[in-house]
C-alpha cells in the first residue's frame, strides 16, 4: 500500500468508468485543502479549541514576567525581551501538541472510516488539519506579542523583526506538530498522546533558554539546552525580534524545522496508512 505524492498516475478502465491507480499531486492538494476546510469548520464550532492559543499566552506572559522578571533580569522591563520570545516558543509547542491530540481524537470518530474508504491520498487527512492549525499558531503568536507590547515590551527589531519572529514561530509550530501527529497516529488513545506529549513538551520547553539564559545552568544541562531544537528557535526569534538581525541561528532553526518535517511527516503517513 504505497502512498500518495507520486505525481505520475495511471488510469485504467473498469466497467464504464475510468479509475486511477493512485491520486495525482493535484488531487492530493485539493483533498488536503478540503480536509483543512473541514478542520476550520470544526474549530469554529468548538470554541474550546481556542483556549490554549488565547488564554494561555495572555496568562503565561503576565505570570512569568511578574514572577521571574525581578529574579532573573533585575526588572520586569528588562526580562520582557527574554520571556516574550520564550513564551512564543512555548505556546507554539503546546498548540502543536494539541494538533496531535485532536487528530487522535478525530481518528476514533466514525467519519474517519469514511475517509479511509474514499479514494483519497492517505496524506490528506493529516495535512488538512495541519494547514488549518496554522490559524491557531498565528493566533497564539499574535496574542503573545500583543500582550508583551501592552506590558511595555519594545522589540529592537522593529516591525520587520517582529513580523519575521512571528512567522518563524508559526513555521516552528507547524513543523513540531508533525512529531505529535506521528504520536497521534501511533498511540492507542487521545489520553495516551496527551501523556506522552507532555513528557516530551516539558523538557523541551523548560530545558531550553526560554525563561533563563543558558549560561546560568550547570555544564551538562547547558549542553542539552544548546542542542534542544526549541532553544534554536528561541535564539533565532530573539535575534530577529530583539536585534532585527538574520543570524546563523535563524538558519539553524529553519534547518531543524525542515529535519523534523522530513522525518516525521513520512513516518506519520506510513503509520496512518498502515492502520487499515
Amino acid at each position: 500500500m504505497s502512498t500518495t505524492l507520486l505525481p505520475d498516475h495511471e488510469t485504467t478502465q473498469v466497467l464504464d468508468r475510468t479509475v486511477v491507480t493512485r491520486p495525482s499531486l493535484r488531487d492530493t492538494l485539493d483533498q488536503s485543502l478540503a480536509m483543512a476546510w473541514r478542520a476550520l469548520k470544526k474549530m469554529r464550532r468548538n470554541p474550546e479549541q481556542w483556549f490554549d492559543v488565547t488564554l494561555q499566552p495572555l496568562l503565561f506572559t503576565a505570570m512569568f514576567a511578574y514572577i521571574f522578571g525581578g529574579a532573573i533580569s533585575g526588572s520586569v522591563q528588562e526580562y520582557l525581551p527574554i520571556v516574550i520570545t520564550g513564551i512564543l516558543a512555548q505556546t507554539a509547542l503546546t498548540a502543536s501538541m494539541a494538533t496531535g491530540i485532536q487528530l487522535r481524537e478525530d481518528m476514533d470518530k466514525g467519519v474517519f472510516d469514511r475517509f479511509k474508504s474514499l479514494p483519497i491520498a492517505r496524506i490528506a487527512p493529516l495535512v488538512g488539519p495541519a494547514i488549518a492549525d496554522l490559524a491557531r499558531y498565528a493566533t497564539a503568536a499574535t496574542l503573545t506579542i500583543l500582550t508583551g507590547l501592552l506590558m511595555g515590551y519594545r522589540p529592537g527589531g522593529g516591525v520587520p523583526g517582529v513580523l519575521a519572529g512571528w512567522l518563524l514561530t508559526i513555521i516552528a509550530g507547524w513543523s513540531l506538530a508533525w512529531i505529535f501527529t506521528y504520536l497521534g497516529t501511533r498511540a492507542r488513545s487521545a489520553q495516551a498522546v496527551q501523556g506522552i506529549s507532555m513528557m516530551i513538551m516539558f523538557p523541551l520547553t523548560f530545558l531550553s533558554n526560554a525563561f533563563v539564559p543558558a549560561d546560568t545552568l550547570p555544564g551538562w544541562l547547558e549542553a542539552f539546552v544548546k542542542v534542544n531544537p526549541v532553544s534554536l528557535v528561541i535564539s533565532a526569534v530573539r535575534d530577529l525580534m530583539n536585534d532585527g538581525m538574520v543570524t546563523a541561528n535563524v538558519g539553524w532553526a529553519l534547518l531543524g524545522c525542515a529535519v523534523i518535517v522530513a522525518v516525521f511527516l513520512p513516518l506519520s503517513v506510513r503509520s496512518y496508512s498502515r492502520k487499515m
Binding site: V14, V19, T21, K109, V111
Partner: peptide, 22 residues
C-alpha cells in the same frame, strides 16, 4: 490496488460515518 477499489465501492458502515460537527 486499494486505491482503485475505493473508486468502485461505496461503503455504508455499521456505524454512521459522517462528521458530527458538519
Amino acid at each position: 490496488h486499494p486505491h482503485m477499489i475505493r473508486q468502485l465501492v461505496g461503503v455504508t458502515g455499521q456505524y454512521a460515518s459522517v462528521d458530527e460537527n458538519l
